[in-house]
Design a protein around this nucleic acid. Structure first.
Length: 274
DNA sequence: ATCTATTCCTGGCTGC
DNA sequence: TGCAGCCAGGAATAGA
C-alpha cells in the first residue's frame, strides 16, 4: 500500500508531466471524486505547473490557481498511458482519465478497491481542506528535538501514534513496523515514556527506513506499482513486516504478529523491549 | 485524550 | 475445480 516512500516515488517519476497541459477530465467512477465529479469534468486546458507531495497526498498545481489533490489509499495507481494502451492490472480499474496536450497520452488514475480519492478546486481551498490542515510534520523534515517533544506529549501506545497522520504525515503500517524494529522498540510501548535516547533512535530509524525505501522505489506490497508499471524493490528489504513465524534477522527469535488498533503488527519479542 | 468498532471495496487466499 | 467466506487496511466517523 502506498505510504510516503511510494507516494514520493510516484511524484518523482511524474515530474516529466510538469509543463504539459491537462485538456479535460473524464470521470469513469463518480465516488472517486470528492466533491463534484461534474466540476472536475468541466476542467479545460490547464497547464501543470508543479507536482509535489504532502504526507501521502499528491498535489498537482495547475495554471490559474487551480489544483488536483490525489490520495492513492490502498490500491490507487497514477501514471501516463497512451490513449489506447491496455494493461491488465490497470485498465479495468481506471476511475479518472485526463487527456494531455494533443490527446494521444492520458494521465490516468486507476484504483482496484476504489478507496482512493481525487479533489479538484482552487489551491487555497485544497490547502484549507480539513484532512490537509490536520496533517502533522513531515517525518523527513522534523528535527529530533521536535520529534522527541511530540512523542512525550502523547500518552498512547507508540505504534498507533506513528500511524496517526496528525502526529506525523506519511508513515503507514509497513514503515511503522519497520521503524520500530530498527529502533528496537515494542509497538505497545507508551510513547510518552520512551525517554530521549530511545526517541532519538526512533527518529533516526524512521528517517533511515523511509530514505532507504525511497532509494529503492518503494515497496511493492498489495498491488503498488510505480507510474511506469514496474515494482519497487524495498519489499525485499523488509525485515519485520509480514514475516510472522520466521526467524528475526537480528537475534534469531521468532517474529510475532499481533493486532494493534485493528492493524496487523509484526515485531520481535526478544529484541523489541517494552 | 485515547481507544474501539464500523464503513468503504475487491482480489486473493483458505478450506471444504 | 468450484465456491463460500474471510482477510488485507487508510481514513472518516461514531460512540465509549
Amino acid at each position: 500500500m502506498p505510504e510516503l516512500p511510494e507516494v514520493q516515488t510516484v511524484v518523482t517519476m511524474l515530474q516529466p508531466l510538469v509543463g504539459r497541459t491537462i485538456q479535460k477530465a473524464l470521470v469513469l467512477h463518480k465516488p472517486t471524486v470528492s466533491g463534484s465529479a461534474e466540476k472536475l469534468e468541466r476542467l479545460r486546458a490547464r497547464k501543470i505547473e508543479r507536482i509535489h507531495r504532502r504526507g501521502k497526498y499528491i498535489r498537482f498545481d495547475l495554471a490559474g490557481g487551480q489544483g488536483l489533490l490525489i490520495h492513492l489509499r490502498m490500491t490507487g495507481w497514477l501514471g501516463e498511458l497512451s490513449a489506447d494502451e491496455k494493461r491488465p492490472r490497470i485498465d479495468p480499474y481506471i476511475r479518472v482519465r485526463m487527456p494531455l496536450d494533443d490527446g494521444r497520452q492520458h494521465l490516468v488514475f486507476s484504483d482496484i478497491r476504489t478507496f482512493g480519492r481525487v479533489w479538484y478546486g482552487a489551491r487555497e481551498a485544497l490547502d484549507a481542506h480539513r484532512s490537509m490542515q490536520a496533517l502533522g510534520p513531515e517525518p523527513l523534515e522534523i528535527t529530533v528535538d521536535d520529534f522527541t517533544r511530540r512523542l512525550k506529549s502523547h500518552r498512547g501506545r507508540v505504534k498507533p501514534l506513528l500511524l496517526n497522520q496528525s502526529f506525523l504525515a506519511g508513515v503507514g503500517n509497513i514503515y511503522a513496523d519497520e521503524s520500530l524494529f530498527a529502533a528496537g522498540i515494542h509497538p505497545l510501548a507508551d510513547a510518552s515514556r520512551l525517554g530521549a535516547a530511545r526517541a532519538a533512535q526512533l527518529h533516526a530509524a524512521i528517517q533511515a527506513v523511509l530514505n532507504a525505501s525511497i532509494a529503492a522505489g518503494g515497496s511493492s506490497v498489495e498491488n503498488f506499482l510505480r507510474p511506469d508499471g514496474e515494482s519497487g524493490w524495498y519489499q525485499r528489504e523488509l525485515r519485520i513486516y509480514g514475516r510472522a513465524g520466521t526467524p528475526c534477522t537480528r537475534c534469531g527469535g521468532i517474529v510475532k504478529r499481533i493486532v494493534v488498533g485493528q492493524r496487523g503488527t509484526w515485531f520481535c519479542g526478544s529484541c523489541q523491549k517494552r
